[in-house]
Design a protein around this nucleic acid. Structure first.
Lengths: 136, 136
DNA sequence: ATTTACCCTATAGAATTAGTAGATTAATAA
DNA sequence: TTATTAATCTACTAATTCTATAGGGTAAAT
């Protein structure tokens, strides 16, 4: 299952991407428009800022805004930040590889084999999809 | 993340598929060979039996065995039983469709759009992979 | 009588999804 | 300049659910 964190994060990003005027948007505004718990969204936007997707401005007239162009924001990066590793098992992860402690041989492991295919399929989708592609 | 339930279930299935002699294999045997908590495996095998993948035999010489040929067992079905719906959100699920309560319009929803692609990609992999393909 | 699957319950730990309270910063009005 | 307001930021807490496992007893086959 996709976590609500990821769902909300994606919605917030696309909301910001579809802004005509390039001014900061307040958390409350995004939360209201997208039906998201404001406090939860707050922590999500914060993590998106800390990972370089968003910028923020405090005080009156403040809010969040995209740092890069939607075309330049790819789902591979977004998903890794919001949802975690794209691979479903660490032993097929590109960025978070870990050996299985219970499995003696990766090459003959059925789970490894299957999840490798799944990872490749998902990577292909995420790499070929930018935020711009999602703003209809 | 792939649950251990699914991981163990897949390992058990491939273990059974790679048996030369077509005789029931005991839970304890599978658990030992595949480094799986026996009690946990017990419940997994039970659910695989109830969903038509395995047969069982009680008493001496008993155990679990595959009902169908490995070639005829596809990952779509296995994954749905072990891991749940293949879709990451209910609004793109073929077998477990549910409307989102927070999202007014599916067609313009970024999450919907992205997850549709992901579902298709995963379905393709699962449909094209049988248990026989994993026993390499 | 023994061996095995079957069934039910409980539980510790982790992750998820929030909510509460306050601190900090920046713009603006006095 | 000062006070006020509007916003992000930080930290703590909590309810709920999910995960993984263990224990003990029952039923059936040999």
């Amino acid at each position: 299952m996709l976590s609500k964190k990821t769902k909300y994060g994606l919605k917030a990003l696309t909301f910001l991407a579809s802004q005509k005027v390039k001014q900061p948007v307040q958390i409350a505004e995004i939360a209201k428009q997208e039906n998201i718990s404001q406090k939860f969204l707050e922590s999500i936007l914060l993590s998106l800022r800390k990972t370089g997707f968003l910028g923020s401005k405090k005080g009156k007239g403040g809010g969040y805004y995209l740092i890069k162009e939607p075309k330049e924001i790819f789902m591979t990066d977004v998903m890794r930040v919001l949802e975690g590793p794209i691979a479903m098992v660490p032993c097929v992860s590109l960025n978070f590889y870990e050996q299985c402690d219970d499995c003696p041989d990766e090459d003959s492991c059925a789970v490894h084999m299957l999840m490798l295919k799944v990872r490749d399929a998902n990577l292909k989708v995420y790499r070929n999809t930018s935020l711009a592609d999602l703003t209809g």
